[in-house]
């Protein structure tokens, strides 16, 4: 992949509110067609990051680019092909669903006839409620309206903050399928959500943040890697040995390390070399890679829970 495939790019972004640092030196990229899960606990700085990406607030330092265009320098240009759902979806409660969409159409300079607009609302199951005021909508209906709104101009990039809040299981499934289809069609998606199982099923890459800082990321190739957990009686010695072997590893639990290997045959070779080096291994097993595990592990590491 070359640079032309980089759709979203944050470089050393910091955001301060007075003395409080909401985001600190954050850098990551999202490439074309990826569904990137953007994960972190409450107050980690996810929403601030998404707001900066959407030009709703400006970074104190660092740069944010969307398709190579600087968001601060040229916000309209950068956001030209971006659709978004930010936080809980807010609409003009005194306008109908259809009027809310028409407001956005006007701002985007798009012409859609009444029939086409109704079809967009039908697609998210709001056809019958199109002419009802939004104040009468349930949370799920508002989220579906938000999705219709985000998709209104067939965006190249979708930035979604907790888009599945309030959706029932059937709507969640439809939403998930919709995102997968969009991704296949080349749409890049940055997805922030607390529902890890949903993100796990969707995302191809992951970015973890905590306390406003990047605490880890998983690339698209990581799922194809062999990940092995190794625990030695002497954790420090095992760590030193792995480092001397130039292995791709990191501490995960007390005295244990996760080692990434390219080939399944490398596992037996690693064990043999460790035994030959005189290391006292007490546990070797495939490393569980479910997202919840990874998430909790990253957060625990950031809290200093691992040595």
């Amino acid at each position: 992949m070359d640079n032309a495939d980089i759709m979203l790019e944050l470089n050393h972004v910091t955001k301060q509110y007075g003395r409080v640092t909401a985001v600190k030196d954050l850098s990551f990229q999202v490439r074309r067609g990826e569904i990137c899960g953007f994960l972190g606990p409450n107050g980690a700085g996810k929403t601030t990051t998404l707001r900066m990406l959407l030009g709703l607030t400006h970074p104190t330092s660092g740069t944010i680019k969307i398709q190579g265009t600087d968001v601060v320098g040229d916000t309209p240009g950068a956001l030209q092909s971006v659709g978004a759902i930010i936080e809980e979806s807010h609409f003009y409660r005194y306008l109908t669903g259809e009027q809310n969409l028409r407001q956005v159409l006007r701002l985007r300079g798009l012409e859609i006839n009444a029939q086409a607009l109704r079809e967009r609302l039908d697609a998210v199951g709001l056809g019958d409620a199109a002419r009802r005021r939004v104040k009468g909508y349930s949370l799920g209906m508002r989220q579906r309206l938000a999705l219709a709104l985000a998709m209104l101009q067939e965006p190249a990039i979708l930035i979604l903050d907790e888009p599945m809040n309030g959706l029932d299981p059937a709507a969640m499934r439809d939403f998930r399928l919709h995102l997968v289809n969009l991704s296949k069609a080349g749409v890049t998606i940055l997805l922030s959500s607390h529902i890890l199982t949903e993100v796990e099923q969707l995302a191809t890459t992951f970015v973890f943040i905590n306390h406003g800082q990047l605490v880890g990321s998983e690339g698209p190739d990581s799922s194809q890697q062999i990940q092995t957990l190794m625990r030695g009686r002497d954790a420090a010695r095992l760590g030193d040995w792995l480092a001397s072997q130039h292995q791709d590893f990191e501490p995960v639990e007390d005295g244990a390390y996760r080692v990434r290997l390219e080939d399944p045959d490398d596992v037996s070779e690693l064990i043999r070399d460790a035994v030959n080096a005189g290391l006292d291994l007490v546990e070797i097993r495939p490393y569980a890679t479910n997202l919840e595990h990874q998430y909790l592990e990253r957060m625990a590491l950031d809290q200093g829970g691992l040595s």
């Binding site: 959407l54 309209p76 978004a84 930010i86």
Partner: peptide
């Protein structure tokens, strides 16, 4: 107060 300012600026970022 309604939270629509963000959405408004998203579509009309001027």
């Amino acid at each position: 107060e309604l939270g629509t300012w963000g959405g408004l600026l998203l579509h009309a970022p001027r």
